[in-house]
Simulated assay, not measured.
Amino acid sequence: MKKRFLHGVFIILISWGSVYAQKSGDQASVFFTTKAQDTVKIGETFNEKDTTGSKSLKNRIKPIQANFKSINSTTKWTSVKKKNIEGESAEGGEAAFYYTDKGLEKVIARHYGEMGQMLIEYYLLNGQLSFVFEKEYRYNRPFFYDTKAMKENNDTEAFDFNKSEVITTRNYFENGNIIMINNTAGRGFNIDADYPSEQEKNLTESFKKLLKLAE
């Protein structure tokens, strides 16, 4: 029973990772139930320091980082709209739209699942995407897999949020185009992604879908 269960979990993780790696744009489709939000929730970055560095793009990235910091330093918003993300997946998620007198400044989207969740933060500069921060948690076991389920399956682990694999991706935009992608997986191994055009297309399309929710 244990081997059959773990094999199933392994297949789910491989399938999920494959969909994510392909950047299909239908990110909500790889997440599952909204019950996850009742137990654990990824914290927003707020004023978390962006340490991403690039010598060749340093001057071009500076205004993006400054805008990120400025937006997250805002203490009073003109309005905040909250919407449920439905339709793309039976499991759903939620989105929050933050406005100042200048207009929409950022959008926070959360997608929930049995085997993980993802937080995506979209930041605007002069009405265009400037920075997109993705933070994905891949659980060690389904969030409902408690100690009872562990014992019944002769397993050695129950769900533990702190044992999640964490993957963060920073996407830098200039005039609507991605100029750099930085991905951090596991213990902090950084790579420059080789799929900027595809990533740009999918993030832009996902953002447009979210904007329709706020209309």
Rank of each mutant, 00 (worst) to 15 (best):
K58H: 11
K58G: 09
N59F: 12
N59S: 15
R60Q: 15
I61Y: 02
I61C: 07
K62I: 10
K62C: 01
P63N: 02
I64Q: 02
Q65G: 08
Q65L: 12
Q65S: 11
Q65R: 14
F68D: 11
F68Q: 14
K69C: 07
S70P: 01
I71V: 14
N72K: 02
S73L: 06
S73E: 13
T74L: 15
T74R: 07
T75W: 03
K76I: 08
W77D: 12
T78W: 02
T78Q: 15
S79T: 15
S79A: 07
S79M: 10
V80R: 07
K81I: 09
K81V: 11
K83C: 11
N84P: 12
I85M: 06
E86P: 02
E86A: 13
E86S: 14
G87I: 01
S89F: 03
A90P: 12
A90G: 14
A90S: 12
A90R: 06
E91W: 06
E91Q: 12
G92K: 04
G92W: 03
E94H: 05
E94L: 03
E94Y: 07
A95Q: 05
A95Y: 03
A95S: 08
A96L: 08
F97R: 00
F97H: 00
F97M: 00
Y98T: 01
Y99N: 11
Y99T: 02
K102P: 04
K102R: 14
G103A: 11
G103F: 05
L104A: 09
E105S: 01
V107H: 00
R110Y: 11
G113N: 03
G116W: 00
G116S: 07
Q117L: 13
M118S: 09
E121T: 13
E121K: 07
E121L: 07
Y122P: 02
Y123A: 01
L125E: 05
N126H: 13
N126R: 01
N126T: 06
L129C: 03
L129A: 03
L129I: 04
S130D: 04
S130P: 00
S130A: 05
F131Q: 00
F131H: 02
F131A: 00
F131G: 00
V132T: 15
V132K: 02
F133W: 12
E134G: 09
E134T: 15
K135E: 13
E136T: 13
E136G: 12
Y137Q: 07
R138A: 11
Y139W: 10
N140L: 12
N140C: 10
N140Q: 08
R141D: 07
R141A: 09
F143T: 15
F143Q: 11
F144Y: 14
F144I: 13
Y145D: 03
Y145P: 03
D146F: 10
D146Q: 10
T147L: 09
T147N: 15
K148S: 11
K148F: 13
K148G: 14
A149C: 04
M150P: 06
M150T: 09
K151G: 04
E152Y: 10
E152C: 10
N153G: 04
N153S: 08
T156K: 15
T156C: 13
E157S: 15
E157A: 13
A158V: 08
A158W: 01
A158M: 11
A158C: 08
A158L: 08
F159D: 01
F159C: 04
F159S: 02
D160L: 09
D160W: 06
F161G: 07
N162I: 03
